[in-house]
Simulated scan of single mutants.
Amino acid sequence: MSISQVLGTLYRYARFRQHAGDAHSIHSPFVFHLYTEVLRPDKQYYAFEGIEQHRQRLLRDTRSLEITDFGAGAARSRQRTVQELARRSAQRPQRAQLLFRLVEFLRPAYLVELGTSLGLTTAYLAAPNPQASVVTLEGCPATAALARETLRDTQAQLVVGPLEETLAPALARLPHVDFVYFDANHRREPTLRYFRQCLAKAHEATCFVFDDIHWSREMEQAWQEIQAHPDVTLTLDLFWLGLVFFRQKQPKQHFRLRL
């Protein structure tokens, strides 16, 4: 991140904190339970230790790789070490563990992840239910090779290639999607395009999770358009993550919540 990006993020976070609430501001029983029992607790589970041990191995790995980045515009290649990827690109343990608790609570049968990176978050998504179908899509072949090591003992299926080419066929092979984690191209137009593609396979109990919804003004615009979509009835803005639900039996509601 450049200094201007850091300052922009700090400004957006300060603005978020001014308007965000906590458990006392929640008047939906479903959201209250989700917030107090799933999102806020800092519980430790059996699966965490093994994944975090693998993270530490990656943080010590000095191998250099040719990384192809599709996540912020046109594809570009650069040399990066594995430990740099583990430090900068992998989801932080606290957020990945929040996703684990969310998956454990919702019990989705069909999960899709857009943006595998090193596979650490994928491992967290796959751990709560080994019988679930987990499909994760990664654009960079070198990163995908590392992710295969991470996911060797999981049921996750890794699909490699640009999302513009791999997402539609991957979705076509699934009867529906119960949980989708969007952590790929952090721009408005691709984010909305992926949202619409996955929406075609969603149902009332589906949950979409978007990473870095306040990463830029462009991502904030995408988040606002997703919130306004007529099929979306409930959203939770956690600043770093945005949760989207399609529960048709409740009025449209949007929450900003501090973790």
Score class of each variant (00 low, 15 high):
I3K: 13
V6N: 02
G8P: 10
G8D: 12
R15K: 13
R15G: 05
A20N: 11
A23H: 04
H24G: 14
E37G: 03
E37T: 11
V38Y: 10
A47R: 13
F48I: 03
G50A: 14
Q53V: 03
R55I: 01
R55Q: 05
R63K: 12
R63Q: 14
F70T: 14
G73I: 11
R76A: 05
R76M: 06
A96V: 00
A96Y: 12
F100M: 02
V103H: 05
V103Q: 05
F105A: 12
L114F: 14
L114W: 03
S117D: 04
T121D: 02
T122Y: 08
T122M: 04
Y124N: 03
L125E: 06
P130A: 07
P130S: 05
S133E: 09
V134L: 15
T136Y: 11
T136S: 13
C140M: 07
Q155I: 04
Q157W: 03
L158I: 15
V159A: 09
E165S: 15
L171V: 02
L171I: 01
A184R: 00
A184E: 06
H186I: 09
R187I: 02
P190D: 05
L192K: 04
L192D: 01
Y194N: 00
F195G: 00
F195C: 00
L199N: 05
A202I: 02
E204R: 11
F210M: 06
W215V: 01
R217E: 08
R217M: 10
R217P: 06
E218V: 04
H229D: 07
V232Q: 00
L234C: 15
T235Q: 07
L236A: 08
D237L: 10
F239M: 01
W240Y: 14
G242M: 06
R247E: 14
R247I: 07
Q253V: 13
F255C: 04
L257F: 07
L257V: 02
R258S: 13
